[in-house]
Design a binder for these strands. Structure first.
Lengths: 196, 196
DNA sequence: CGAATGACAGATTTCAATATCTGTCATTCG
DNA sequence: CGAATGACAGATATTGAAATCTGTCATTCG
């Protein structure tokens, strides 16, 4: 399946794992399948990942980190803070909506995986609220945001927009009124950050 | 079980249904159980509710309406709009948190039921956002809120506080930092409604 | 000698036979 | 005569035996 001559890196195993998940779905994806896809015995996979749970957690982290990376580009950009925050929230919504819409089965698979790997999800949420904190701080420094506790407010911004990034709401993301609902919530939140 | 002399009203059947749900849980609660609890044959239950699904939907609606009624008292009260809105959101959070904390198994049961009765849930959300619209309108009339589209903003307020009323977040309601998180989101949203 | 293998025990999943439940309706009961 | 019953057919759920999978480790391979 994959060139057996190449070194067996964790990354190659994770790639094969995602492929197996895509092919068979979460419920039927076994470690034996991953090993077969790589042309090795399943004992070899266990040499790199101590348990099946560890393998699943690693592939989940990889998936979450891809979104974090996209948003980091927005965070480190040079936009004006209010525009940047709006852009960041829109980019998060867009990323999630496309993942859900482009390959619904794989999205469902990763939804199951995130549900069983809350530690990885908590770390991901920490990454994202960290980026939000940076944007808010920039806004406070330039006098365009008025914020008490930066980290607490970043968390509040993240939680108040949950409808547009939490996978439990994925079924609603394809509704025609979703963009309007996103604008309503985003505008309300941005108004809440603006100095009087 | 129940006095067989009394007339068999839909309300009595729903009471018995809730009792059976509490005793057996959603998965094992059958129409036969409900009939047995009432001391009648299951055919008689089918005389009042066309299907088991209709019975489940009715008992779900009854459960949701109890919360709506509590909040209606706040909505029709005489508080100042900003205080009333904060009070309303806190009452909603409190009602849900207590339902989840006081009888977790029954709460899980109703979570399953709401998931399979989205029509009843949509109606419930319509009721609640209707109440929010009334509070916002009051605030606009008194000049303490600045709102474009009343209904859209009511919906935005409801969605942005989902962390504190959507059952999917129930596991987080008992965390020690939940009240602080509630305050952060509520304050952010209220600031977003205030005129500049 | 370190990386890979595959046989193995215990845990988990699958599958098909069996039991229970849903929804109907001809009949009974008050 | 209208409300309640319970036997019934088809649908759904339960159960336990068989198959598969996870994780280990003594052995093999390069």
């Amino acid at each position: 399946m994959a060139p057996p001559t190449e070194a067996l890196t964790p990354e190659r195993i994770l790639e094969a794992t995602e492929e197996v998940l895509r092919r068979h779905g979460v419920a039927k994806a076994t470690v034996v399948d991953v090993a077969r896809a790589l042309g090795v015995s399943h004992g070899t996979v266990y040499r790199h990942f101590r348990t099946k749970a560890a393998l699943r957690e690693a592939v989940t982290k990889r998936w979450l980190d891809r979104t974090t990376a996209v948003l980091a580009d927005v965070t480190s950009g040079s936009e004006e803070p209010a525009a940047k925050l709006r852009h960041w929230l829109a980019a998060l919504f867009d990323a999630k909506r496309h993942k859900a819409g482009d390959d619904p089965e794989l999205f469902d698979t990763y939804t199951v995986l995130t549900n069983e790997n809350s530690a990885a999800v908590d770390a991901h949420i920490g990454d994202l609220t960290g980026q939000l904190t940076a944007i808010l701080q920039e806004g406070v420094e330039r006098g365009v945001f008025e914020v008490g506790d930066l980290a607490a407010t970043a968390r509040a911004v993240f939680e108040s927009t949950a409808h547009f990034h939490d996978p439990v709401y994925a079924p609603q993301w394809s509704r025609p009124d979703a963009p309007a609902a996103f604008d309503a919530v985003t505008s309300l939140v941005l108004r809440g950050l603006t100095p009087r």
